[in-house]
Simulated scan of single mutants.
Amino acid sequence: MKTLIVTCLAACVALSGCTSMLAANSEDAAIDHFVSPPEGETAKASGPDDRMKLSYASEETPNLASRAFDMVVKLGNNKVDVYRYRDPETGRSAYFDAKGYRLGQYLLRNPVPDGRRTSGFGNRRHPVLGYSRMHAGVDWAAPVGTPIYAAADGVVKFVGKHGGDGQMTVIDHGHGYESAYSHQSRFADGIKVGTRVHQGQVIGYVGKSGLVTGPHLHYAVSVNGRKVNPMQVHFIREGRLSGTALAKFEKAVAADSKKANAGAGV
């Protein structure tokens, strides 16, 4: 078993259980695909926070599903099977979950690596307004001026004052995914509507603008216009296989699972 450990920006990722053959440098390709380096760093440099652990073992004959590798991604209490699948007819490869959804970048759950989570997603009593209402995001407390990082690649959709959200930035990540960053003290230089940003790029700074009792980032994620819990969204789904392609993929995944279970004596 081989292990590669890199540091990534607040990704909270542990990758393990890989059982298929890796092509040369494919571990770097996986990291580059899911997690970009922090702003101003190279792909080989350590980021400011959590760690990604990728373990894998070589095989003489790679299975149909992966042709490069498959892995189990452990995210908190959740596990996601990830397959680098090469269609035997087209020869094209991409990363998929076990249901055939194509996986894009990992969506950072904490855009303020040194922040302290103070409020989660769900109904709560608003500390300023004094009544209960939906808290459609996660709050990360940090000192005024703490950098805020883009959760994934995308294009700035909104930047400016937004009522009780104070100074806010909204990033469109494509495929129906958007992230919003509220209560900022100021925006980073060059951040304006239409600006293309990259995962790990500084987009603004923690503040206490809007309806707040102290400095923090209110981080929200929406998928197809619906607010979702940022702690439960791990990857940007870029569509799903369909028809014959999905059937072939599901057959390959089933064969891979059967082989893994046999190897474990199940």
Results as ranks from 00 to 15, higher is better:
176 G>V: 03
250 E>W: 00
83 Y>P: 08
87 D>F: 11
91 G>F: 14
39 E>M: 14
232 Q>N: 13
259 K>D: 15
166 G>Y: 04
242 S>G: 13
75 L>Y: 15
43 A>M: 09
245 A>H: 05
217 L>R: 01
154 G>K: 10
175 H>E: 03
120 G>M: 11
14 A>E: 06
208 K>W: 02
238 E>T: 12
83 Y>E: 13
162 H>T: 04
166 G>P: 06
49 D>H: 10
266 V>M: 14
251 K>Y: 01
179 S>H: 13
121 F>W: 14
21 M>N: 10
197 V>D: 00
211 L>A: 14
261 N>A: 15
238 E>Q: 15
18 C>P: 01
15 L>P: 02
244 T>M: 07
216 H>M: 04
249 F>M: 09
16 S>H: 07
114 D>L: 03
55 S>I: 10
177 Y>H: 01
207 G>T: 02
251 K>H: 06
53 K>G: 03
37 P>H: 05
92 R>N: 11
132 S>L: 03
78 N>E: 15
10 A>N: 13
28 D>R: 10
215 P>N: 01
95 Y>Q: 12
122 G>S: 03
156 V>F: 01
115 G>K: 09
218 H>V: 06
72 V>L: 12
257 S>I: 12
87 D>P: 09
242 S>C: 02
27 E>S: 07
257 S>Q: 15
244 T>N: 09
217 L>P: 06
1 M>Y: 00
57 A>M: 11
113 P>R: 10
240 R>G: 05
110 N>C: 04
62 P>S: 08
241 L>P: 05
85 Y>D: 12
241 L>I: 06
2 K>Q: 09
160 G>L: 13
254 A>Y: 08
195 T>F: 03
192 K>E: 15
263 G>C: 12
227 K>M: 14
129 L>Y: 11
176 G>Q: 02
157 K>L: 07
235 F>A: 05
117 R>E: 12
224 N>D: 15
89 E>Y: 13
116 R>Y: 10
82 V>W: 04
167 Q>A: 08
253 V>Y: 11
159 V>G: 09
149 Y>N: 06
67 R>A: 05
179 S>D: 08
24 A>S: 12
51 R>H: 05
74 K>N: 12
55 S>C: 05
41 E>V: 02
91 G>N: 11
183 H>F: 05
16 S>W: 11
79 K>R: 07
250 E>C: 05
256 D>A: 07
36 S>M: 06
238 E>G: 09
156 V>Q: 08
68 A>S: 09
40 G>C: 02
41 E>P: 01
255 A>M: 07
165 D>N: 15
163 G>D: 02
45 A>Y: 02
255 A>T: 07
145 G>F: 11
224 N>Y: 00
38 P>S: 08
248 K>Y: 02
34 F>K: 03
177 Y>R: 03
94 A>W: 00
157 K>N: 13
176 G>L: 05
31 I>L: 12
189 D>K: 14
1 M>V: 04
56 Y>N: 12
189 D>H: 12
263 G>E: 08
217 L>I: 11
219 Y>S: 07
60 E>D: 13
221 V>Y: 06
53 K>E: 06
16 S>F: 10
